[in-house]
Computed example of a mutant assay.
Amino acid sequence: MEIEYHGGEPEPGTVYLVGSGPGDPGLLTVKAKRLLERADVVLHDKLPGPEILGDLPDERCIDVGKRAHGDRTPQSEINERLVELADEGKSVVRLKGGDSFVFGRGGEEAEYLAEHGVPFEVVPAVTSAVAAPAVAGIPVTHRDHASSVSFVTGHEDPTKEDSAVDWDALATAGGTIVVLMGVTRLPQYVTALQEGGMDPETPAALVERGTWQEQRVATGTLETIVDARDEVGIEPPAVTVIGDVAASRESVVEFLENEREPGRAESETDAVPADVPDS
């Protein structure tokens, strides 16, 4: 099939805010791949999959990633570096995991570039907020279970008086809740949701490194998901799904091809009430 490309040829002095998708190189967009192959410089996070980062020449890459409880490159430094490189006449790819405009600070970088007169282009991607649950057999919406979905950050401490996330409202809103970057604070926000009125028996799941060979899944209920996380050993990066859709995995996991890829981790806890075979 002949594909007509629109763009993908990097221009000097331009910054491209590129999402890498959830990590599987097969889910990298055609445009993103073309830019990565041809840009002068790539500033990347830690979250793009190792196969994607492994294909990039070291001499063109600058690691500006952030690790949970580890070294961090200040966002202000990243912003300044993007402007400096563009002012030098280089074509620059700012590569992020997932989609750069879904909790990826892409909006902040776009505003900074515009403020400093730097031309930029946004290259959207498959967001891990949807892709990670999907490859684990969990749809974030389902005609029988959820007609709405809320995406929230798990970095917010639910006990803060000025928290930007209204957990009480989410507890009674219905639909699906997808929490990104929420492994560490899982005990706090599942407690906040229960205190806000959500049924402790509400299904829940954690998907670590969705689409990667190291993908792992823990399932349970709002009341048991913390124990399930600890038993499986789920670590960041992971996506949390809360709502009836999380139980959908039970009916498909036995036939889910993503579960049988070579090298796929097999450890799992399925604490949602059902007799589901481990995969």
Results as ranks from 00 to 15, higher is better:
residue 219 T to I: 00
residue 220 G to V: 01
residue 220 G to E: 01
residue 221 T to R: 08
residue 221 T to P: 05
residue 222 L to S: 10
residue 223 E to H: 10
residue 224 T to D: 07
residue 224 T to C: 04
residue 224 T to I: 06
residue 224 T to E: 10
residue 225 I to Q: 03
residue 225 I to T: 01
residue 225 I to F: 00
residue 227 D to K: 09
residue 227 D to I: 00
residue 228 A to I: 03
residue 228 A to R: 05
residue 228 A to G: 08
residue 229 R to T: 04
residue 229 R to L: 07
residue 229 R to Q: 15
residue 229 R to S: 03
residue 230 D to W: 02
residue 231 E to A: 15
residue 231 E to I: 08
residue 232 V to A: 09
residue 232 V to W: 05
residue 232 V to M: 05
residue 232 V to Y: 05
residue 233 G to A: 04
residue 233 G to N: 06
residue 233 G to V: 02
residue 235 E to A: 14
residue 235 E to L: 14
residue 235 E to H: 08
residue 235 E to D: 14
residue 236 P to D: 06
residue 236 P to K: 07
residue 236 P to M: 12
residue 236 P to H: 11
residue 237 P to R: 03
residue 238 A to S: 15
residue 238 A to I: 05
residue 238 A to C: 08
residue 239 V to C: 02
residue 239 V to F: 00
residue 239 V to A: 00
residue 239 V to D: 03
residue 239 V to R: 00
residue 239 V to P: 04
residue 240 T to R: 00
residue 240 T to E: 12
residue 241 V to A: 08
residue 241 V to W: 01
residue 242 I to Q: 06
residue 242 I to P: 09
residue 243 G to R: 00
residue 243 G to K: 02
residue 243 G to E: 03
residue 244 D to K: 13
residue 244 D to W: 00
residue 245 V to T: 13
residue 245 V to Q: 09
residue 245 V to A: 08
residue 246 A to S: 12
residue 246 A to Q: 11
residue 246 A to E: 11
residue 246 A to Y: 07
residue 247 A to V: 05
residue 248 S to A: 14
residue 249 R to D: 00
residue 250 E to W: 05
residue 251 S to Y: 10
residue 251 S to V: 09
residue 251 S to E: 15
residue 252 V to D: 11
residue 253 V to E: 14
residue 253 V to L: 14
residue 254 E to D: 14
residue 254 E to V: 13
residue 254 E to Y: 00
residue 254 E to R: 11
residue 255 F to W: 09
residue 255 F to I: 01
residue 255 F to A: 11
residue 256 L to D: 14
residue 256 L to W: 08
residue 256 L to R: 11
residue 256 L to Y: 09
residue 256 L to M: 12
residue 256 L to H: 10
residue 257 E to A: 10
residue 257 E to V: 10
residue 258 N to G: 06
residue 258 N to E: 14
residue 258 N to I: 00
residue 259 E to Q: 13
residue 260 R to E: 09
residue 260 R to N: 13
residue 260 R to Y: 15
residue 260 R to A: 08
residue 260 R to W: 11
residue 261 E to I: 13
residue 261 E to K: 15
residue 261 E to Q: 15
residue 261 E to R: 15
residue 261 E to P: 00
residue 262 P to I: 07
residue 263 G to F: 04
residue 263 G to D: 02
residue 263 G to H: 01
residue 264 R to I: 13
residue 264 R to E: 09
residue 264 R to M: 11
residue 264 R to Y: 12
residue 265 A to Y: 02
residue 266 E to S: 10
residue 266 E to H: 10
residue 267 S to T: 15
residue 267 S to Q: 14
residue 267 S to K: 15
residue 267 S to H: 10
residue 268 E to V: 10
residue 268 E to L: 03
residue 269 T to L: 13
residue 269 T to D: 08
residue 269 T to K: 12
residue 270 D to M: 07
residue 270 D to F: 14
residue 270 D to K: 01
residue 270 D to Q: 06
residue 271 A to F: 09
residue 271 A to L: 15
residue 272 V to D: 04
residue 272 V to E: 05
residue 272 V to A: 08
residue 272 V to Y: 14
residue 272 V to S: 06
residue 273 P to F: 04
residue 273 P to D: 15
residue 273 P to Y: 04
residue 274 A to N: 12
residue 275 D to N: 07
residue 275 D to A: 11
residue 275 D to G: 08
residue 275 D to Y: 00
residue 276 V to S: 09
residue 276 V to W: 01
residue 276 V to T: 15
residue 276 V to Y: 00
residue 277 P to W: 02
residue 277 P to L: 03
residue 278 D to K: 11
residue 278 D to L: 13
residue 278 D to T: 12
residue 279 S to G: 06
residue 279 S to A: 13
